[in-house]
Simulated scan of single mutants.
Amino acid sequence: MTRKAGRPRAFDPDEALRRALMVFWERGYEGASMTALQEATGLTAPQLYRAFESKERLFERAVRLYQDEYGFGIRSGIPLAEAVVEYLDRAAREFTTEPGRGCLVSTGLLATGQDAQAAAAICRAERDHALTGLRQRVADAVARGELPETADVAGLSRTIGALIQGMSVQARDGAGYEELAHIVTAAQILLAAVSKG
């Protein structure tokens, strides 16, 4: 009797997903070929599809794992300026430390072809969620009097978001923590100026 081909006996879906995440993080969605994903997970293409349905679904689950294990947001309960500096400094450290460089959500899928639109939408939704959180945090700072009522809430929140995304790109290009820390200092000066109105 012939045994049907299937997953390896030692197949661990969580470990396979973790290994796929590292491939996506390093190469981006389109750069992560099925061959690279197979090599990383130890699964054949049919086994990958049986386990995760499609490359897009595998990427979606990898993004969720990334957010659970490596994602972070701006802290509440402290003054906005302090929270932003802490947020950017953590980004500078995280983006320049192994296991990956940069942020998977910020830079893992920006320019894409037609075949990657579903995966692009996954990352866009995560970025939109982060921007909504930033906007709410800035609006709260205005309501508490930390920022003047004339503060541009949408503009400031998008600026902070753009700094995070830019830091991710620079980290992917090889910038180290010390270089990205200059951005944190510049943001601190910017926030002090905005606070004064």
Score class of each variant (00 low, 15 high):
46 P>C: 07
9 R>H: 12
79 P>W: 12
67 Q>A: 14
112 T>N: 08
108 G>P: 06
73 G>W: 00
11 F>L: 08
164 I>R: 15
75 R>Q: 14
186 A>C: 04
105 V>L: 07
26 E>A: 12
16 A>P: 07
80 L>I: 11
4 K>T: 15
185 T>G: 05
135 R>F: 02
87 Y>K: 07
65 L>E: 14
153 V>E: 03
139 A>Y: 04
37 L>D: 05
173 D>A: 15
86 E>D: 15
107 T>N: 04
186 A>F: 09
144 R>W: 08
19 R>P: 01
56 E>A: 15
153 V>Y: 03
63 V>S: 08
69 E>S: 15
23 V>I: 15
35 T>S: 12
63 V>W: 00
167 M>N: 05
18 R>Y: 01
25 W>Y: 05
85 V>F: 09
162 A>V: 04
57 R>I: 13
158 R>N: 13
61 R>F: 00
192 A>V: 12
84 V>K: 02
80 L>N: 11
150 T>D: 01
28 G>A: 04
4 K>C: 06
148 P>S: 09
89 D>C: 02
2 T>L: 01
77 G>N: 09
36 A>P: 03
163 L>S: 06
91 A>W: 06
77 G>W: 04
87 Y>N: 03
42 G>L: 10
159 T>W: 13
137 R>L: 01
31 G>S: 09
33 S>W: 09
46 P>L: 06
138 V>W: 04
164 I>P: 00
